[in-house]
């Protein structure tokens, strides 16, 4: 039986791990390759690197980080952040990424998703959907796509966009609530569920995990195939093993293999 995936995410800037609270106030916390190895040994089901390096010149560091990680960790690695062209994707895949996540470029030009999927296969194209709730208290829920770390509204409906990119060839969607990211208040479960129920591809819930129940909720209430978290693991609040054990105790099907 297919298991629920638990995915620790590392925000990487200039080759170093950081974790933003609401994508501001960055705290430096280590070497991404070392962190990746630790997560690999701890039984993480996949790894995710989100590159938030601003300058184009410093992007080269990321390829080195990805390559060294792929050489040491025999598990799937998704890399995103600043992916704008087919050439960006090719370089990341050649460095050793298994999947590449596209965000702003897909919002600006959804056809880029089709081009990328046709070129490299649906299985390695993840579309990262950053959404904020825009409906009022008494209105039916509506979420919009935001770019640039949640600063820029686009007016695009998140659910319609999710359907569109899934049809264009995204193999997986990474759904982040920009309202919840960094709050430790839990995923926006209504958002995750609305998207997971609307598309046939797997959805990863992201943004807002503060405790282990939030991970369980992402699957049970959000209908996500995989759950992503960063700071609860990165700052040692919980280990991967604790989280997976807890999720299994709550009745979720988890991979609990002993790691080498």
């Amino acid at each position: 039986m297919l298991k629920v995936r638990l995915i620790p995410c590392l925000d990487v800037k200039d080759g170093r791990v950081v974790k933003g609270v609401q994508f501001v106030d960055l705290v430096d916390a280590g070497d991404p390759v070392e962190a990746a190895k630790a997560y690999d040994a701890a039984g993480a089901d996949e790894l995710c690197f989100l590159d938030i390096t601003a300058s184009h010149e410093a992007r080269g560091i990321l390829f080195d980080v990805v390559q060294r990680t792929a050489e040491a960790c025999f598990m799937p690695l998704t890399v995103g952040g600043g992916v704008r062209s087919v050439d960006d994707i090719r370089k990341l895949l050649l460095a050793g990424a298994d999947k590449v996540s596209i965000n702003t470029a897909a919002v600006k030009n959804p056809d880029f998703v089709r081009e990328a999927a046709e070129k490299f296969g649906n299985q390695c194209i993840v579309v990262a959907i950053d959404a904020k709730k825009v409906s009022g208290e008494s209105e039916p829920s509506r979420w919009e796509i935001f770019t640039h770390g949640g600063r820029n509204a686009t007016g695009i409906d998140a659910i319609a966009f999710a359907r569109q990119v899934a049809e264009l060839g995204a193999g997986e969607l990474l759904v982040t609530s920009m309202d919840r990211d960094g709050t430790k208040g839990g995923y926006d479960l209504a958002l995750v569920r609305a998207i997971a129920d609307a598309v046939s591809v797997p959805v990863i819930a992201s943004g807002g995990v503060g405790n282990l129940d939030h991970l369980v909720d992402g699957v049970e209430k959000g209908h996500a195939s995989a759950v992503l978290a960063a700071s609860i693991f990165h700052f040692g609040t919980h280990t991967i093993a604790e989280a997976k054990g807890y999720m299994a105790d709550k009745g979720l099907k988890m991979r609990l293999d002993k790691t080498a």
Binding site: M1, L2, K3, V4, R5, D45, N122, Q123, G171, E172, S200, V201, P202, V203, S225, A226, R255
Partner: peptide, 10 residues
């Protein structure tokens, strides 16, 4: 059940 079949299986 989602397609692709993606993840860890026995």
């Amino acid at each position: 059940l989602k397609i692709p079949h993606m993840g860890w299986n026995t």
